[in-house]
Design a protein around this nucleic acid. Structure first.
Length: 735
DNA sequence: TCCCGATCGCTTTTT
DNA sequence: GCGATCGGGA
């Protein structure tokens, strides 16, 4: 690019302002669909070309690998050069890079391993067992989230203020023990990557100075999602001197429950000297009807930084609202509508069904299957999280580090080789008492013959297997190591003999692991730091597997309807969007309804959902829903009422369109209807009639529609508000 | 060691 | 209603 101003071509004034602002702290408040990534990428290009910033002085941080990959790819495309060594990555991968480079200063063993949340949970469970702690009072998951929570707040055990609370004190003690176990095994969890790298910089002034000088500009994506630790990390790394460009949207902050601090973005202007804010409000995604609705909804939140989305585009179709009489009916409406759309020429991949909680997908899936509509669910288990893969990785970790207790315990008896829980118990006790790793304890036990008979034979065989694997794989290429390990350990055979298709799939996954390793060393799928031979490559591969567990996006080949939670839809867009289950208690979820702060986060989640739609948006809800195996009456979500009526349109299934019933006359189809079971007659009802309902109490019939099984009445209940009830289901008694 | 049945609990997810 | 988890029994 000869002329730097070409970077600003085809940009709107706000985008241009953000991209070309002189170096200095800047907050880009980027609304949904406002070209955020483009601005970020062009900003980097501008800094390099107009401000003379070296590519190596750039630090660009994201939350997900996907976002990092996208940024790098787009930047390379824009600049036409390879940016292999430029620091673009997730918080965790950058922290990891720092720790690998400065492992000694970070007081870590050279070959430290990264453990994922699953490993972390297993570790906590074992800890509780070892210390005979009641796991009813201290549920492993709670202990785990306490530990991660502390780390995310940047707190070490001694820094946690227990203010005399015995329960808290116990938690802290567990945290301390957990940390000790990690140290001993050379294990680093996700939170530790960040906390440790923060401490590394904090405690090594020369190192800190080096990086502060090295980075000329720091860019952060999705700033509203940063937690306390990430915020502190950024402050330390920039020394409040290095200019930062942060991009985010307070209205799309939906991760408060996992530690994200919305205050970080709200306070940015005050905290960072000379910070300038640029708002990107022009939307290139949705119709104005959709944007108006989204704007109206989010206005119900307090403490916003303020932002209004607008478009030069057309108003478009109104938002369709469908009230199903139950969850099956809701699903049927959605799938019928999808089939119609597809017949009209919409690709299935352009249609998404979003929901608040995963459990909702079941009914939708069943209906899609029944009607033969191909679909794909986002968010299944990921490749490196699969059981067979984790087992294989555990063997590989043992090759690098015998003291990795978690891995040793994972595979000592997988496949079964006669080392039962009792034997492992003996080893564990010994390890704890002599303060050594399991591997060491195992050898000690073999030496002083405290293991006897069959147990001793099996344990010895296992130890020899590991040593043998290590010897045999010396000097081999990464994929050959892995191939050898899964064969010789018996893992492949173990799964081959597993009954059913499951075993087959697992064998295939293990084979896929070998292929992935091959691709890894050849730099096809990943960019290994310096993937050398054998152990070096193995270490890099294991870290990569932990940090980048593979995405759950399936093959793009088949044209599929997309199903996912509202959370996973963030950042995506679809021409046609259905949001299902827009009901009180489900969305907003009942767990988040009480506290105003959490309710606002639910509303932001809804805002995120609405702004995913490009052309057409459907909001559906059901009056009766099976929840946890129980039929529950549901009320339409308050969020529906917060949308402007002028952009809403009630839809009914074809053939179900009913004239509004004139008051005073008995409603058509309401009297002498038989109930679903064909038995008892439904009560004779008319508009204005007083009725009683077992759950909602007494009320007055306001409206009626439909016939037969589907006939519904709207009843105004005292204290409960207006409700549409299905006569076939609701037990209404005339008064 | 594995398999089965009872029991529990149940929002969202990345690294 | 489903899936994970656990304990007991063969």
């Amino acid at each position: 690019m000869d002329d730097v101003t070409a970077i600003l071509d085809h940009m709107n004034p706000a985008q241009r302002e953000a991209v070309s602002a002189p170096q200095g702290n800047m907050l880009v408040l980027a609304g949904a669909g406002s070209g955020k990534t483009r601005v970020l990428v062009h900003r980097i290009a501008w800094l390099m070309q107009a401000e003379g910033l070296s590519p190596y002085a750039v630090l660009a941080v994201t939350f997900t690998n996907k976002a990092a990959r996208e940024m790098r790819t787009r930047l390379e495309a824009l600049l036409g050069i390879s940016l292999r060594n430029v620091w673009v990555g997730t918080f965790h991968s950058i922290a990891h890079r720092l720790l690998r480079t400065h492992w000694q200063d970070a007081r870590l063993p050279q070959h430290f391993q990264i453990i994922d949340s699953d490993d972390q949970l297993r570790l906590v469970k074992r800890l509780l067992k070892d210390h005979r702690i009641d796991d009813e009072r201290f549920p492993p998951r709670q202990v785990q989230s306490f530990i991660s929570g502390c780390k995310e707040e940047g707190l070490r055990p001694h820094q946690v203020d227990v203010h005399g609370d015995a329960y808290l004190a116990q938690m802290v003690e567990l945290y301390e023990r957990y940390q000790l176990t990690c140290e001993r095994g050379g294990l680093v969890d996700f939170g530790e990557l960040l906390l440790r790298s923060l401490e590394l910089l904090r405690d090594n002034p020369e190192l800190l100075a080096h990086y502060q000088q090295r980075f000329g500009h720091v860019l952060v994506d999705e700033f509203q999602d940063t937690n306390t630790l990430q915020y502190a990390w950024l402050k330390l790394l920039t020394g409040m001197q290095t200019p930062m460009t942060v991009v985010g949207d307070d209205d799309q902050s939906i991760y408060g429950w996992r530690g994200a601090r919305i205050e970080n973005i709200r306070r940015f202007e005050q905290e960072f000297p000379g910070a300038k804010t640029v708002r990107l409000e022009q939307n290139y995604r949705s119709t104005s009807a959709i944007l108006d609705a989204a704007n109206a909804l989010i206005r119900h939140n307090s403490e916003r930084m303020g932002k209004e989305l607008w478009t030069e585009g057309a108003r478009g179709e109104p938002i369709s609202v469908y009230s199903g009489f139950n969850d099956l009916d809701e699903a049927r409406f959605i799938v019928d509508t999808i089939r119609e759309k597809v017949e009209e020429g919409t690709n299935r991949r352009e249609i998404a069904i979003l929901y608040r909680s995963n459990a909702q997908s079941r009914v939708l899936e069943e209906t899609l299957i029944r009607q033969g509509v191909p679909y794909r669910i986002y968010g299944g288990q990921r490749f490196y999280e699969r059981l067979e893969i984790k087992n294989a990785l555990a063997y590989l970790r043992l090759l690098l580090n015998r003291d990795d207790d978690a891995s040793l315990e994972r595979v000592i008896n997988v496949p079964a080789r006669g080392i039962g829980t009792r034997t492992v118990e003996v080893l564990r006790t010994r390890a704890r008492q002599t303060e050594v790793s399991l591997w060491q304890a195992l050898h000690d036990a073999l030496l002083d013959a405290s293991l006897k008979g069959r147990a001793a034979t099996s344990v010895r065989a296992f130890a020899e297997l590991i040593e043998g694997l290590d010897n045999d794989t010396a000097g081999l290429a990464l994929h050959e190591i892995i191939d050898h390990v899964i064969e010789r350990s018996g893992l492949i055979e173990h799964h081959r003999s597993e009954k059913g298709e499951k075993g087959q799939a697992r064998v295939e996954n293990l084979e896929e692991l070998v292929t992935a390793a091959k691709a890894f060393t050849q730099g096809e799928t990943f960019e290994p730091p310096e993937a050398g031979e054998g152990a070096v490559a193995l270490e890099a591969f294991l870290s990569e597997a932990a940090l980048n567990a593979g995405d759950h996006e399936a093959d793009e080949f088949e044209d599929c309807v997309q199903l996912m939670t509202l959370h996973s839809a963030k950042g995506l867009e679809f021409p046609v969007v259905f949001i299902a289950g827009v009901e009180e208690g489900l969305f907003p979820h009942k767990m988040s309804m009480e506290e105003p702060g959490r309710l606002e986060e639910e509303r932001r989640l809804c805002y995120v959902g609405l702004t995913r739609a490009m052309r057409k948006l459907y909001l559906t809800h059901a009056e009766l829903r099976r929840l946890h195996g129980k039929e529950t009456f549901q009320r339409a979500s308050r969020f529906l009422r917060e949308l402007p009526e002028e952009h809403l349109e009630e839809v009914r299934l074809r053939g179900q369109i009913s004239r509004p019933v004139t008051a005073g006359r008995p409603a058509v189809g309401l009297s002498r209807q038989t109930s679903v079971d064909g038995g008892a007659e439904l009560p004779s009802l008319s508009l204005g009639q007083r009725v009683s309902h077992p759950v909602f109490g007494e009320g007055v019939i306001l409206n009626a529609e439909g016939e037969g099984e589907r006939a519904r009445v709207q009843v105004s209940f005292e204290g409960e508000g207006d409700k549409w009830l299905v006569l076939g289901f609701a037990k209404l008694t005339p008064l």
